[in-house]
Amino acid sequence: MTLKYLIAGATGGLGSQVLSYMVANLPSSEYAAASSHESNRKRFEDQGISFRLVSYDDPSTLEAAFEDVENVLFVSTNTFDVEKRAKQHQNFVDAAKKMGVKHVWYTSLAFGGFKSESNVDVQRAHLMTEDMLKESGITYTSIREGIYTDAFPLFLGWYPESKTIYLPSDGPVAFTSREELGEATARLMIRGGFEKQIVLLTAQETITFTEIVELINETTGRDVKLEFVSPEDYVRLAGTDDIGGKPDAFFQTLLSWYEGISKGDARTTDPLMKDLLRREPTGAKRFIRGLLTQDQDYRWHQNYVK
């Protein structure tokens, strides 16, 4: 029996939102959840959701999971090891081609907009995967997802305890709600089309780090300072006794992100997300104000090593 949609990364922040939309809007026979952990099977099957084991490190699980699948959501792995990610992603693409998956929907990032010239470290890995998909000859769509508004503390280097934030530069970012990205991605897969294309899903406004700090202070009554320093001083200051326990190497990696943002790599917006949602996506200012109004000590999990 053909399966219409397989959601890889169904336990992750984005994949779970895509799956939730399908659960609410499609017959259960049309979709299935995929995860690299067999222990998640019961969790999904208890909800009446079919489950398939998918390990990006094990091609045999990929081939078994992709049998008779029409559309698969290909969620990027979360490793910072570029060589490991390249192998994992090649395994995924090869298995999808071998098993005849009709359409692969890859979750890329929005750095660089529609262009493929960004030198942001994390975006280079996505561009590498887009090249794999092109070279494979399979039908794919690369969905360049807007940078999560939810993750603003990570990009800003902000904690509820922060008195001063140090950054190497500023620039406009089209931050976008993760929940709405999940819904828009699901709607896009259901709509279909966009074969062998790059699409961009973003909210319609941008915000700078300076404006976010002003919003934090305005909403929470804090008096957080923002200082712009040299790249070398940023790594030293941010990495010294980081509340989240992140090492200097992490902040060194972030330098390419800030350089890209300062050059406008994160400023491009596109109306496709608005069209898919049939409403205006939530802008960063309203979203962040809402988060901080609900919880003045809002935290983002990736800001912490553990």
Results as ranks from 00 to 15, higher is better:
residue 123 Q to E: 10
residue 266 A to T: 07
residue 203 A to R: 00
residue 44 F to H: 08
residue 73 L to N: 03
residue 247 P to C: 05
residue 211 E to S: 13
residue 34 A to D: 08
residue 146 G to F: 02
residue 197 Q to H: 12
residue 261 I to Y: 00
residue 243 I to D: 02
residue 181 L to R: 02
residue 126 H to N: 10
residue 179 E to P: 00
residue 62 L to S: 02
residue 264 G to Q: 08
residue 113 G to V: 09
residue 257 W to P: 00
residue 159 Y to F: 14
residue 245 G to D: 04
residue 19 L to S: 01
residue 232 E to R: 07
residue 302 Q to S: 07
residue 285 K to A: 11
residue 192 G to A: 13
residue 276 L to N: 04
residue 189 M to V: 12
residue 33 A to E: 04
residue 65 A to R: 05
residue 234 Y to S: 10
residue 25 N to P: 13
residue 273 M to K: 03
residue 182 G to E: 11
residue 263 K to C: 09
residue 274 K to G: 06
residue 70 E to D: 13
residue 29 S to Y: 14
residue 267 R to F: 01
residue 105 W to D: 09
residue 172 P to Q: 15
residue 179 E to W: 00
residue 172 P to F: 14
residue 193 G to W: 08
residue 153 P to A: 09
residue 217 N to M: 15
residue 153 P to Q: 08
residue 175 F to A: 13
residue 280 E to I: 10
residue 28 S to C: 15
residue 125 A to G: 10
residue 223 D to T: 11
residue 66 F to P: 07
residue 110 A to C: 15
residue 274 K to Y: 00
residue 267 R to E: 12
residue 170 D to R: 10
residue 294 Q to W: 05
residue 120 V to W: 03
residue 272 L to Q: 04
residue 237 L to D: 08
residue 148 Y to M: 12
residue 99 M to E: 13
residue 102 K to M: 11
residue 227 E to Y: 01
residue 93 V to Q: 05
residue 68 D to I: 06
residue 265 D to P: 12
residue 23 V to I: 15
residue 55 S to K: 12
residue 144 R to D: 03
residue 183 E to A: 15
residue 179 E to G: 02
residue 228 F to Q: 11
residue 30 E to V: 08
residue 126 H to V: 05
residue 60 S to C: 01
residue 81 D to K: 03
residue 7 I to E: 02
residue 278 R to N: 14
residue 288 I to T: 04
residue 161 E to S: 15
residue 216 I to R: 07
residue 252 Q to Y: 07
residue 238 A to I: 06
residue 113 G to D: 07
residue 204 Q to G: 02
residue 277 L to S: 10
residue 51 F to H: 08
residue 228 F to R: 09
residue 93 V to K: 04
residue 151 A to V: 11
residue 30 E to Y: 06
residue 188 L to D: 06
residue 194 F to S: 08
residue 262 S to R: 10
residue 28 S to T: 15
residue 15 G to Y: 00
residue 283 G to A: 08
residue 207 I to C: 02
residue 31 Y to V: 11
residue 285 K to H: 10
residue 306 K to P: 00
residue 242 D to Q: 04
residue 37 H to Y: 14
residue 66 F to R: 08
residue 31 Y to W: 10
residue 241 D to V: 05
residue 221 G to E: 11
residue 219 T to Q: 14
residue 210 T to R: 15
residue 105 W to N: 10
residue 34 A to Q: 07
residue 95 A to H: 03
residue 295 D to S: 13
residue 254 L to E: 09
residue 67 E to C: 13
residue 278 R to C: 09
residue 114 F to K: 11
residue 304 Y to M: 06
residue 241 D to P: 04
residue 1 M to K: 13
residue 152 F to N: 04
residue 33 A to K: 04
residue 231 P to T: 05
residue 118 S to G: 12
residue 116 S to D: 13
residue 209 F to M: 14
residue 69 V to H: 01
residue 153 P to D: 09
residue 73 L to G: 02
residue 236 R to T: 14
residue 78 N to F: 10
residue 291 L to F: 04
residue 169 S to H: 11
residue 101 V to D: 07
residue 11 T to L: 02
residue 250 F to Y: 12
residue 74 F to V: 13
